[in-house]
Computed example of a mutant assay.
Amino acid sequence: MGGLKCEDARRIAREVLSAHSVGERLVDDVLLVVSELVSNAVRHAGGVTAFRVRCLPDSVAVEVSDGSPAAPRTPGTPAAAPGGFGWLLVNKIAQRTEIRSGRDGKTITAFVAAGATAT
Rank of each mutant, 00 (worst) to 15 (best):
N91C: 13
G23L: 13
W87P: 01
C55L: 04
I108M: 04
A13V: 07
A110F: 04
T107R: 04
G76P: 01
L32W: 06
V48T: 04
R73M: 13
C55I: 07
A80W: 12
A116C: 14
E15L: 08
E63T: 15
G46N: 05
A19S: 08
T107V: 13
S65F: 07
G102A: 12
T49D: 11
R103A: 15
D8F: 10
R25H: 13
R25I: 12
G102H: 12
D8I: 11
P78N: 06
D28S: 12
I108D: 05
L26I: 09
G23W: 00
V34T: 00
G86H: 04
I12F: 01
A70C: 04
R14M: 04
P78Q: 09
T107M: 06
A45L: 10
R73S: 14
H20E: 14
A79S: 06
A13S: 07
E98S: 10
K5E: 11
D29V: 15
T119H: 10
D8N: 14
I108S: 00
R100A: 15
K5N: 07
A118F: 08
R11E: 12
G76L: 07
G115R: 07
R52C: 08
G3L: 06
G23Q: 03
R52D: 12
G2M: 13
A116Y: 06
L88S: 11
R14C: 02
G84E: 03
R54D: 14
V64A: 05
D66S: 13
T107W: 09
D29Y: 04
K5T: 05
P72K: 07
G105A: 09
A50E: 07
P82Y: 09
V16D: 00
G76W: 07
A118V: 13
P69T: 15
V33A: 02
L88E: 06
A113V: 13
